[in-house]
């Protein structure tokens, strides 16, 4: 940290906290043990701002802002867990569950899934929006990994880790709206990919069972959550 970085003071959930001026609200909250739920954010990857779970209220701003991409300001008054926000987070999560075919009981990541544990975190007991039941494919052409679109929440962690950390950019997104899909290369089967290095980082940053290792059965696919923090740390040490 250079000496020119300024320190800002702000209030998060009625607590006075100090922060570097370049920090996001999410970073500062975590440093201070204030938990804000996230799905697309992952330390070591660029911020995305798409999952909307980390929205917070900022006094004087009518809009809810994503704490992962909002930098701190002097005197900011942030509320992370008002009833209003809690209600929206629950609705958002219900929308996620209604979007695709998330059947926890027969999922390889059952017990290790961030979407599943998020339901507990935001106190979602059921989905009151209609389920959409889209007909989706599973790409099982790769010899080591499986991409199951039924369980994808389009957080793009896999796309970002493949591009930013591995440097392969095998994964990307196609189409838009409800039709968006994670693709490999130019929408060719993963097994035919010439760019995939088989590193498996995408599998381990995937919050759900959308990316799993081949051969893993129900509840067997735990993810190595420390992989990315470790890689980031080693990179920083190297630099």
């Amino acid at each position: 940290m250079s000496s020119s970085v300024k320190i800002k003071t702000l209030t998060i959930d009625e607590r006075q906290v100090g922060a570097r001026e370049d920090q996001t609200i999410l970073d500062v909250a975590r440093e201070n043990g204030i938990k804000i739920p996230t799905l697309c954010s992952l330390k070591g990857l660029s911020a995305y701002g798409g999952c909307r779970m980390c929205i917070v209220e900022i006094a004087g701003t009518p809009k809810l802002l994503p704490s992962c991409m909002t930098t701190v300001e002097e005197g900011m008054v942030v509320t992370t867990n008002s009833d209003r926000i809690k209600k929206y987070r629950r609705s958002l999560l219900e929308l996620y569950f209604s979007e695709r075919n998330h059947v926890c009981s027969v999922c390889a990541t059952n017990g290790y899934c961030e979407l599943q544990s998020m339901a507990q975190e935001v106190e979602m007991t059921h989905v009151h929006f209609p389920y959409m039941y889209p007909q989706l494919d599973i790409d099982a052409t790769h010899e080591r990994f499986i991409l199951d679109h039924n369980r994808c929440i389009s957080c793009t962690r896999c796309v970002r880790v493949c591009d930013e950390i591995e440097g392969a950019h095998t994964l990307d997104i196609k189409d838009r709206g409800i039709d968006i899909r994670v693709i490999t290369d130019l929408d060719h089967p993963w097994g035919e990919s010439e760019t995939c290095t088989q590193c498996g980082k995408c599998v381990h940053v995937c919050p759900t069972g959308a990316l799993i290792e081949r051969g893993k059965s129900v509840g067997e696919m735990s993810k190595r959550k420390q992989l990315l923090p470790y890689l980031t740390k080693m990179r920083e040490a190297h630099e």
């Binding site: 995305y48 701002g49 798409g50 999952c51 909307r52 958002l92 929308l95 996620y96 209604s98 979007e99 929006f129 209609p130 959409m132 929440i153 389009s154 997104i173 189409d175 838009r176 709206g177 409800i178 039709d179 968006i180």
Partner: peptide, 22 residues
């Protein structure tokens, strides 16, 4: 809106599709 939503954020991606269905 549903067909022009980019799909990046869940509320717009899923919400507009749900609203259209309703």
């Amino acid at each position: 809106c549903r067909s022009e939503s980019c799909g990046k954020c869940a509320p717009c991606r899923v919400g507009t599709a749900q609203m259209y269905n309703l």
